[in-house]
């Protein structure tokens, strides 16, 4: 088991958001987390990445046998956890490729590998940028500065390709993408599917799952996973919308 979440309860800004989530993810699997606005999808992604705005008030998260919640965000990244941000932040003055080289070398150092020099790094970059059909000029610009929404998301997956995580959490990576950009991003993600890697795709819409076909789909509502199933569950949601889930949750409450 790569990731085991047990009865996780999370608070943000004094509000209970996750109210007991349990989820098990093995290497090689792709899990989709779906749910209406405010159901707690992004909170789940952020607590896994170590975002300081979220506090776990109960439950456990075990990643590769370790207590994930005890780890600093950089430790999680070094141990192979990657989050593709829903809203990637712009960092003026920090060159994209310098940033990525610092990140990659931090990971390599953590693993006891030699840091890459400029030439070796450039080789990695060249290969991975083709995967995402990235314009090379994006690498020389400041991190996300002046990037379109699509470019930002593409840049996130590009970083994922370079950093080669063991667990990738994609937080609404599809939002704000037109169909062409969606295809490119999804192709990038698919090419990173591997028996050694697990991917959690957080999305509001089923559309992304046409391109990144999940092994499991979980529906989150009001801070709890209310249904889990195979990829066909996403289609059912597409047909029926989220209304029936809310009704079901309401009836149960």
């Amino acid at each position: 088991m790569l990731l085991e979440i047990k009865d996780l309860r999370v608070k943000a800004e004094d509000k209970d958001i996750l109210k007991g989530v349990s989820l098990s993810v093995n290497s090689g699997e792709v899990h989709a987390i779906m749910g209406p606005n405010g159901s707690g999808k992004s909170t789940l992604a952020r607590i896994l990445s170590g975002h300081p705005g979220y506090e776990a008030t109960g439950g456990t998260v075990t990643y590769d046998g370790k207590d994930l919640l005890e780890m600093e965000p950089e430790e999680r990244a070094c141990e192979g956890v990657f989050m593709a941000f829903q809203y990637p932040v712009e960092i003026p003055g920090v060159n994209n490729s310098y940033f990525l080289k610092s990140a990659l070398n931090a990971l390599r150092k953590h693993k006891g590998l030699q840091e890459l020099d400029a030439v070796e790094f450039l080789q990695v970059i060249r290969e991975k940028s083709q995967l995402l059909e990235m314009d090379q000029s994006m690498l020389h610009r400041a991190v996300n500065e002046g990037f379109s929404g699509g470019e930002k998301k593409r840049n996130e997956i590009f970083q994922m390709a370079v950093l080669e995580p063991r667990l990738a959490v994609l937080d609404e990576t599809d939002s704000g993408l037109d169909i062409d950009a969606l295809r490119v991003v999804a192709n990038g993600v698919n090419s990173l599917r591997s028996p050694d890697r697990a991917i959690i795709v957080v999305t509001h819409y089923q559309r992304l799952l046409d391109y990144i076909v999940p092994d499991f789909v979980h529906v989150l509502s009001d801070g709890r996973i209310v249904r889990s199933g195979g990829k066909e569950l996403a289609l059912e949601l597409e047909d029926k919308g989220y209304g029936w889930i809310d009704a079901a949750a309401g009836a149960r409450a």
Binding site: S49, G50, H51, P52, E72, P73, E74, R76, A77, C78, M83, F85, P88, V89, I91, F99, L100, S102, A103, A106, L107, H110, V143, Q159, L163
Partner: peptide, 15 residues
């Protein structure tokens, strides 16, 4: 900026 700091840390760069 806290968001920028977090973004860098989330990529493995120490505080």
């Amino acid at each position: 900026d806290d968001d920028q700091l977090f973004y860098l840390r989330a990529r493995g760069i120490g505080q």
